[in-house]
């Protein structure tokens, strides 16, 4: 499996961060950064990282299954994450999520057929004082109203 030179450079740098013989420490960052490039944690990717770190594919698989941000299926080009945890709930997060469901015609963890959008109801994303908050891919949007959500989604090409 081949990666971009930028990702290879990032991997090489990462592997220097850990004590001798403990390079497995790089597994989660490698999965996260590779997922961005590959689009999902594929079987091939898990096998490749297992080989590079000297662990089994099963060990990579059990780690992948544990973390909510690692996903084996591709998400939409724009992954819309609406927080409905307490701080957001108090400021209309649940209504915002319902609105997003209708607007995108998607449910929790669903991806549109054309692959443009996917939706997820997420737990606290750390924007509680500026609630309700959403993330589109890695970008935060604070104090989101239904109107503002429409604007954000319509602005994504």
């Amino acid at each position: 499996m081949t990666f971009s030179p930028q990702l290879e450079a990032r991997f090489a740098e990462l592997l220097t961060h850990y004590p001798e013989g403990r390079q497995r420490g790089a597994l989660i960052p490698m999965l996260m950064y590779a997922q961005d490039e590959v689009g999902a944690v594929t079987q091939e990717l898990m096998e490749e990282l297992a080989k590079r770190l000297g662990i089994t594919t099963l060990q990579v698989d059990e780690v992948t299954g544990y973390y909510s941000m690692l996903h084996k299926k591709p998400q939409g080009k724009y992954h819309v994450q609406v927080c409905t945890n307490v701080a957001c709930m108090l400021r209309g997060g649940a209504e915002l999520y319902d609105h997003a469901c209708k607007k995108l015609n998607l449910g929790h963890k669903q991806t549109a057929a054309d692959g443009k959008f996917s939706l997820e109801e997420v737990e606290c994303i750390g924007a509680c004082s500026w609630a309700p908050a959403i993330q589109v891919n890695y970008d935060f949007h604070h104090e989101v109203t239904t109107g503002k959500l429409d604007e954000i989604l319509e602005g994504l090409k």
Partner: peptide, 8 residues
Amino acid sequence: TQTGAGAY
């Protein structure tokens, strides 16, 4: 830096 991957 070390990134997490979504786990409270």
